[in-house]
Amino acid sequence: MPSQEIIIEVSNVSTSFGQHKVHDNVSLEVKRAEIFALIGGSGSGKSTLLREMMLLHRPDSGKIKVHGVDLTNITEAQGQSLRQHWGVMFQHGGLFGSLTIQENVGLPLREHTDLPDSLINELAEWKLSMVGLQSGVYGQYPSELSGGMLKRASLARALALDPDLLFLDEPTSGLDPISAGEIDTLILKLRDMFGLTILMVTHDLDTLWQVSDRVAVLANTKVEALGSMLELSVSKVESVRQFFDGKRGRSAYAQEQKISELHI
């Protein structure tokens, strides 16, 4: 369960692309072993915020600290060590097309450790089986896999270095409900068993209800609301209401109500 230790600290971050303002003084904190979700409509700057946390984009002003390291004036060496402590699963996989699935997962280990090849292969196979991929596909190339398999393989690669922080960009989008459910279970298992801190961008209401501890709603360049799904579901803020009052939002909420009744 989440502790009080802060892993990611975003304070007063502003970002704009040309005239278009994406973030205006956005602040939030992610605690250790927390599953934190960023939601918001298209163009609300969720992905940009995520990219800023992973050192892929620099905010115009404000400060982001990851593991207590300020990303604004980070040195190359600090950046490298930080990168080995997080894993990233990209929306479209981001797997290298010239490598097999197993080589993709083994690549971070080959780059950053002195482990022998045989061990790296074993570890890669294990990570792949952990995300639910069958051994038949390990030798295949990303172009030969389905979208769902790519997501799983990408997750396995994100886990290759046993990171303590995991960034997930739309982990369940484009997956069938069963696979999405399995990914949800896996995310929970990783957090409970290995104490991973997980930050994800998602639109999947089921995932949000099942998995997330806290959710930040980005809208109108700000964090409009922040809290657990239960807290947000009774929020009066308009942008949050839009999210819950849509047809899909209502059905996911209803389902959640049924599930919690069963548990009681």
Partner: peptide, 11 residues
């Protein structure tokens, strides 16, 4: 016993 501290453990 973490990935980055295993060094030549296999040997």
């Amino acid at each position: 016993w973490v990935t980055s501290k295993l060094f030549d453990m296999a040997e």
